[in-house]
């Protein structure tokens, strides 16, 4: 019960911090001071107190998009184990619901983008939906590997307990898997090298260009939802990549938070040393992620 409360609190409070850490890392790499660590919180607090401007073209779909997107991501966050701790809800088949909740979020945010009738937003939505067609199989190949390794059909046994021992027994396979999941993590959260979260008017943008017409509290919901998605998929990644466990609940929570911060630093380093890929290269990169995960599956099936 206490763990469930901590789970929900960390899930609700920590996501914007990840953005702060990423930006601070990038600033240090670039030799800048950078914005404060808690800048994302300030932005959110500002946005919920701001007025909104709605385009004449838009309908209720535009207003519902951010709400459903955030709600679906929140529902998914209840299913993912954080570190060694069980999530509040866990059942056989929850990994499929987990993946499909993000599908629902994507449906609603892309539909909201098309509601503006702008070509910019249309482009962003088309790219988001097209790249997801390639990112989803990579995620499911990874889930298949985890199911086979743990002999279970639920995220909790897949990601807790056995992960550490699996590294010893099927290290090569997990290494491929981690590579694939990292690519999926960056692509799904629209980070460099797939998308640049800092600009939004270039024709090659994905996420930022989809939300051009959103403003005020609804835009805040979008920003928070994006941070939460990064947090949830990041937790999936760190559960496999950094499976430390001591068995003492409090220490494990601290370890989890440290692992997430390390992931944020890692993402910041990737963003600092890499440029964004040209758009036609993105599908190739995602196909590579699929193939990595498929090889990983072959290794555990052998």
């Amino acid at each position: 019960m206490v763990n469930a409360v901590i789970h929900i609190l960390i899930t609700l409070l920590m996501p914007p911090l990840l953005l702060g850490v990423i930006n601070r890392t990038k600033a240090i790499f670039a030799g800048r001071t950078g914005p404060p660590l808690f800048q994302a919180y300030y932005d959110l607090a500002k946005l919920v107190r701001k007025g909104s401007v709605f385009s004449d073209t838009t309908s209720w779909v535009f207003r519902a998009g951010p709400v459903v997107g955030l709600a679906a991501t929140l529902a998914a966050s209840l299913l993912i184990p954080l570190g060694e701790h069980r999530p509040p809800l866990s059942f056989s088949g929850d990994m499929i619901l987990f993946a499909y909740l993000f599908g629902l979020a994507r449906f609603c945010t892309t539909a909201a983008a098309l509601d503006t009738g702008s070509s910019f937003e249309g482009m962003g939505a088309a790219r988001e939906a097209t790249f997801a067609c390639l990112a989803e199989p990579a995620l499911f190949f990874s889930l298949a590997v985890l199911a086979r390794l743990s002999g279970s059909l639920s995220l909790t046994p897949m990601l807790t307990g056995t992960a550490a021992t699996s590294w010893l027994s099927a290290g090569a396979s997990l290494l491929l898997l981690v590579g694939s999941l990292f690519i999926v993590l960056l692509a799904e959260n629209c980070r460099v090298p797939f998308d640049d979260p800092n600009t939004h008017l270039e024709l090659t943008m994905i996420h930022e260009v989809m939300v051009l017409d959103h403003s005020g509290p609804l835009f805040g919901a979008i920003l928070y939802g994006a941070a939460l998605k990064l947090f949830v998929l990041g937790a999936l990644f760190t559960d496999i990549a950094l499976p430390y466990a001591t068995g003492i609940p409090l220490v494990d929570w601290v370890l989890f938070v440290i692992a997430m911060l390390m992931l944020a630093v890692g993402i910041g380093m990737v963003e600092s040393v890499m440029a964004r890929l040209r758009l036609p290269k993105v599908p190739q990169m995602l196909a590579a992620a699929c193939i990595l995960a498929a090889f990983s599956l072959l290794l555990v099936l052998r």
Partner: peptide, 9 residues
Amino acid sequence: QPRGRAGTW
């Protein structure tokens, strides 16, 4: 909060 209407960007 105040709400405005405008054309799409």
